[in-house]
Write a protein that binds this DNA or RNA. Structure first.
Lengths: 343, 343
DNA sequence: TTGTAGGCGTTATCAG
DNA sequence: CTGATAACGCCTACAA
């Protein structure tokens, strides 16, 4: 049914030359007569010749394809990262194979397996929330397999990664809230096993300390799922149970921040006059909601692009990146909007 | 540097048997002694043997990989579609290679080229806004190459596609606004060259007609970009220039709807009391904004999943789908929220 | 300047 | 029950 692709052999047969001549002519190898080159290229055109990348991969043991493993595609931050990955990969002649784990460890492992079968040249990974053991990654790394982690980075010594400065982002956000006159600041934290969550808590604490505000453990609450519903429930409860009531919320992500705002409104408090809110990530909707949501922006595109550059350099130079390619920490930017501005 | 993958030959050498025996043993072919099977499988385990999918692809002229071509990854609707694609592809043992065109025709063409080189088994396509000529697709279709279009479908007779019922969605939204007592309803339309835009306009018009409201051409305005800024400007202008002023907006997408709401608020009108607003797509933020945004939901996941099922059936059965696989039109669902409820 | 041969990893075919 | 051989499409020593 499907029309067969023309191969080098077809061109060779038509022209009564050997296939090696055709191969060389097509790649402008030295030592091929211009006449032959011309004829070969003409025939290639005529037969709609297209090199078979699969055959090339087999020959070179290189697939020019990188595997991307992320928790979820439907996620503003991750989709932004993917976009950055795709741009760089495309411009450097690589394909991107995508797989989402849906936060499942089993899926993560099996994805890696099929990708290894498919001879990926390297991996870009943000691991699942379920992943606490990293041997399936460290084994590959030990074999010299190129893997660059982003956003969520594993406890593997020497593993290359690209992250944002979560500490500074959280510090900035908390400091900003304090400077706006809020003092009983709740931190809606992320899953405690993720390093990004820990770093953000650290930044939050340090900002408090810097301004002489004592840290209260009950003001740091873990939002495991990170949904707005979850945050809304937690916030509503906090507003009731804690006295004096909290006057600000610094959320680990924007969806949670929106949930907090909703809960505040429902409880009859105005944002930002009575309660200030800052999110994290700067999702698309931050600027269009009312009040607009202050947020710590992390440039997902740049994270993806940078991680891909590092990975491809590693792949192509076939050097040990540990000595030349440091991990990268990108800066965040606090975008102050209405939800936290009362001065 | 990279540890070499064990091959069938390695197993064969270790066991002093032929590679064909190993191949057969691994696949539980009939006519292999249990003893040999056991030994082969043990050795495969020991050497961490992993079949080389590239070699298999070359052998079978099948890559078990499908190519996905979309305008943008960072887009709630498209990311949802990708998620559906990925789920089905993974569960059926296929890989997904992703490429975004950024709405550029040139990029679309070159992506197809490299994907063809990479021997994709088929394509899932939503073409770019720049694409008006479809010969690069129809040529492939004529060669029997499997392509399933989604969301944006080309003017190619017999092309298989998966779309939502844009007409009915727009009709429902408009009808709902009318029933809520709005009558001077603006439609913020999409790019006029896309069929989805045309269909939505048609649904809008028919609902008006149904309720005896005369259609006014000046109330349909094209928003080419579909951003909130664009919609905000256009809305602000409409509120000034048209008398009597519009009392409802049905936007071609949710971002535009948000822009409209913003403009209404800025002009001192309350939503939904004075002006009603309905969007299209049901983006994530619809339920968390204030007032919550009514929207016509289109199930991106299902679109992606359905398109992938059709494509893989086509690929695997190698039948001509024109006779057995009809195109699919999925129904939309109007989600009524606060932005359009005043009764 | 061009051709020949061998191999990348796998499996189908034909022998034994 | 198992082995040898060829082929998928391409590239590259080595020969001529």
């Amino acid at each position: 049914m499907r029309l067969e692709q023309a191969t080098i052999k077809d061109i060779a047969r038509e022209l009564q030359v050997s296939s090696s001549t055709v191969s060389r002519a097509l790649k402008d190898y030295p030592g091929i007569s211009d006449e032959t080159k011309r004829k070969v290229k003409e025939m290639a055109e005529k037969l709609h010749y297209r090199p078979n990348a699969i055959a090339l991969s087999l020959r070179k043991s290189r697939s020019f394809t990188i595997g991307v493993i992320i928790p979820e595609v439907v996620h503003f931050f991750f989709s932004t990262v993917i976009s950055g990955i795709e741009e760089v990969a495309f411009s450097r002649g690589y394909n991107v194979i995508l797989t989402q784990t849906n936060e499942k460890l089993a899926r993560e492992k099996s994805s890696i397996d099929t990708m290894l079968s498919n001879q990926m040249d390297g991996f870009l990974v943000s691991y699942s929330k379920e992943t606490t053991d990293f041997t399936h990654f460290s084994k590959l790394l030990n074999q010299g397999y190129p893997i660059v982690f982003f956003d969520r980075v594993p406890e593997i010594p020497g593993a290359i990664h690209v992250i944002v400065n979560d500490y500074a982002g959280a510090y900035d956000a908390t400091k900003h809230l304090i400077q706006q006159g809020y003092s009983r600041i709740v931190h809606l934290a992320g899953p405690s096993n993720l390093k990004i969550s820990q770093e953000r808590i650290r930044g939050y604490k340090d900002a408090l300390k810097e301004f002489g505000i004592s840290f209260l453990p009950e003001l740091v609450v873990e939002c495991t799922q990170g949904t707005d519903e979850e945050a809304q429930k937690i916030t509503a409860q906090l507003l009731q149970s804690i006295a004096p009531r909290p006057d600000a919320f610094f959320a680990n992500n924007d969806l949670a921040a929106m949930g907090a705002i909703q809960a505040c409104k429902n409880a009859g408090f105005s944002v930002p006059q009575e309660i200030g809110v800052v999110g994290f990530s700067n999702w698309q909707f931050c600027s269009i909601v009312d009040p607009s949501l202050s947020s710590v922006a992390q440039n997902g595109f740049q994270i993806g692009a940078t991680a891909t550059e590092i990975l491809l350099d590693w792949i192509e130079k076939k050097t040990d990146p540990k000595t030349i390619q440091p991990s990268v920490v990108l800066e965040t930017e606090l975008l102050v909007r209405k939800s936290s501005t009362r001065i």
